[in-house]
Amino acid sequence: MKKLFNFCLIGLSIALISWGFKGHRAIATIAQKHLTSNTAYVVSAYLKGEGMADVATWADENRNNKTAPWHFLNLPLGLTHDQFVKLVTESDNNVYSAILKTEASLKDKNLTPDQKNEALKYLIHLVGDAHQPMHVSRKEDKGGNTIQVRFDNKGTNLHSLWDSKLIDREGLREADIVKTYDAATPAQIKQWQSDSPMEWIWESYQISSELYAQVKAGQRIDEAYYQKYIPVIRKRVDQAGIRLAGELNKLFNNEQVKITTVTPAPPPPPNTQIVTAVKLEDIKQATGKTVSVQGKVYSSKDIGSMVLINLGAAYPNQLLTVALKGKAKDLGNQIDTKTITVEGEVIDYKGKPEIIITDPAKIKF
């Protein structure tokens, strides 16, 4: 059964972030508003003083081979609730199992503060992912990434439309998004927080099934579509925030935090990493290795938290995607059409090889 339904990544290697930067921060901010005072203290302690909104996209920005599948869940359409629960229960390494694992980690009294910090940052993000309908959807179209549509006279795809395009259309500032979306009644809060993570993703599955039934490749997304579904997006973001707060209150409301200072391990000796030179055409076979590879930049895209550049061919036929973040992000507007040499670990992201670069010295052109 596990082989038949392979719960792997969806989407293309341009790495669209679920709910976009605005959506994830809104979810975290809504959750923060609904924490008990003790939970808020514990969360702040584990996050080392950072706000929940500030770490809301950390899990996307620090994905790797192990954690990349945690953001998604692929299922065939047409499942009954019982069939859905059976398949999800039998699966592993997806958004549902990742939420359960991170919550178990946060209950584990033997974990270090750094381990709790990482688990909490994942949970904050993954609860949001579970409520994005296109993150619980079909494998064959990579969660709607291959379904091209037009919105606001521009080309996009179904996944991106639901990640950020509909939210962006509202034109609201971050604070106004939270003010507008955080509209749950006390009765709704009680009901939403009593639902299990299985029900969260079942709701997303039902919505994505409806979206698939109503869209055709090349379709123009009109005002009627926007007016129909922006309330759905508002509700899903609000539900994610309210439910995240509920989970954190269950975990931390009665917890007494004891943060101990751990002396960091000394840095490894310099020049101990083995770097293998590979041809761009062979990059897919180098997954998991730290390599040096050269290729021409054919296209790029700034998604806010990082710049994604495609080597070897333009998207979607690229041989390698390089994600520039941190200080390296500033190179994004300097390397279009240039031939560059990149050094870093090759990961498999949504079926395509990718290298994440934070140090500008790892790129030469």
Rank of each mutant, 00 (worst) to 15 (best):
E223Y: 14
K258L: 13
A245H: 02
K250A: 13
I242F: 06
A224K: 14
N249F: 09
A245P: 08
N253L: 09
E223Q: 15
G246Q: 04
E223A: 15
D238P: 02
K235A: 10
E247T: 10
Q239Y: 06
I233V: 11
I242N: 02
N249Y: 08
R236H: 08
V232K: 02
I230E: 00
E223G: 12
G241L: 05
L244T: 04
K235E: 08
L251N: 07
F252T: 06
Y225I: 09
Y226R: 09
L248I: 03
R234S: 10
F252A: 09
Q239F: 09
A224S: 15
Y226T: 04
E255H: 14
N254D: 14
E223W: 13
I259S: 10
L248F: 07
Q239H: 08
N253V: 06
I259R: 10
L251M: 03
I233H: 08
A224I: 11
K235I: 00
Q239W: 08
P231V: 12
R236I: 05
R234A: 06
P231W: 07
V232I: 11
D238Y: 03
R243Y: 00
A224D: 10
V237C: 03
I242T: 11
R234V: 05
G246F: 08
F252I: 06
N253K: 12
G246P: 06
R234I: 02
L244M: 03
Y229E: 00
E223H: 14
A240C: 02
R243S: 12
E255W: 14
L248W: 05
Q239S: 07
Y229F: 09
K228V: 02
V232N: 08
V237F: 04
A240R: 00
F252M: 03
P231E: 05
R243V: 00
L251H: 05
K235Y: 09
V257A: 15
Q239D: 11
D238K: 01
V257E: 10
L244G: 00
Q256A: 15
E247Q: 13
K258D: 12
N253I: 05
Y225F: 14
N253S: 15
I259W: 07
L248C: 08
G241E: 00
Q227M: 14
D238R: 02
K235R: 11
G246R: 04
N249Q: 05
N253H: 13
P231F: 08
N254G: 14
L248V: 04
Y225R: 09
I230K: 05
V232Y: 02
A240S: 01
E255S: 15
A240H: 01
N254S: 15
K235P: 08
L248Q: 07
A224Q: 14
Y229D: 04
A224E: 11
E247L: 15
I242Q: 06
E247I: 12
R236E: 07
K258P: 12
L248H: 09
V237Q: 04
I242W: 04
G241Q: 02
I230P: 07
I233Y: 03
D238Q: 05
Y229K: 02
F252E: 04
G246V: 00
Q239C: 06
E223K: 15
N254I: 11
E255F: 15
V232G: 07
A240Y: 02
E223V: 12
K235L: 10
